[in-house]
Amino acid sequence: MKKALIVLTNETRYGETAEATGLWLGEATEFIEELENEGIEVDYVSPKGGFVPLDPRSMKYVDDSILSYYERPDFQKRALTNSLKPSDINPSDYFVIYYTGGHGVMWDFPNNHELQEIALSIYNDGGYITSVCHGIAGLLNIKDENDEYLIKGKKITGFTTSEEVLAGKKSIVPFLNEEVATKHGANFQKKRAYKEFAVYDQRLITGQNPFSPRAVAKLLIEEIK
């Protein structure tokens, strides 16, 4: 069976500020756990490859499951220390690409053409493009062979503007996911702030916030079964 490709950020801070950010840990581990329970293998890629920082705020919201993955030597090595570079990836090895969140992705996901090409290749081969929370930033600028935004006319979700306000980061982030998704023609869906929510449309599966990675995974598993 083909594998799942997990996309992680390399960004350590909010733009030019001195405030630390990075991967929101649970958004990776909770999705991965659901897939591994189904016998699905995963690989990890980041825009630059190598080191993946953790968003320190995410460590306040860990449970035994998240910590158990964090403590696994293989996760530490393959995800957090030696993530693959886009040039290492053969898209035909994967049936799904999953963009994780954490505010860092707002800087290194949206305009990474190598990752966009990988995602589009997986999608055009009948696979799935998925994301959670800020990970939607990786989908916003993907264009299809007709030079149309892939999200145009499709139901998607991601970290909302109201959630960005509640997080206290609206004035720091370089753009607002909800705003750009709507501008690019998506049918942006949302529910109450910080409540689990995921949506499926035409092999795009997206989750709203850090409480939604398992919901994304379960929708994916339902589809492939």
Rank of each mutant, 00 (worst) to 15 (best):
A28C: 15
A28T: 03
A28K: 10
T29W: 11
T29S: 13
E30S: 11
E30P: 05
F31M: 11
I32Q: 11
I32E: 07
I32R: 13
E33R: 14
E33V: 05
E33T: 10
E33A: 14
E34K: 15
L35Y: 09
E36R: 15
N37A: 08
N37G: 12
N37M: 13
E38Q: 15
G39P: 05
G39D: 04
I40L: 13
E41W: 02
E41T: 07
E41D: 13
E41Q: 11
V42M: 10
V42K: 08
V42W: 07
D43W: 05
Y44A: 06
Y44H: 08
Y44V: 08
V45C: 01
V45D: 04
S46T: 01
P47Y: 07
P47N: 07
K48V: 02
K48H: 05
G49P: 06
G49D: 07
G50E: 06
F51A: 14
V52S: 04
V52D: 05
V52P: 06
V52K: 03
V52H: 05
P53F: 06
P53Y: 03
L54S: 03
L54E: 04
L54A: 04
L54H: 10
P56M: 03
P56R: 00
R57F: 01
S58Q: 03
S58M: 07
S58H: 05
S58P: 01
S58I: 03
S58V: 04
K60H: 11
K60V: 00
Y61R: 09
Y61C: 00
Y61T: 05
Y61P: 00
V62K: 13
V62G: 00
D63F: 09
D63W: 08
D63L: 06
D64A: 11
S65H: 01
I66R: 05
L67G: 01
Y69K: 10
Y69Q: 00
Y70C: 01
Y70R: 13
Y70A: 12
E71T: 00
E71L: 10
E71C: 07
E71M: 10
E71Q: 15
E71P: 00
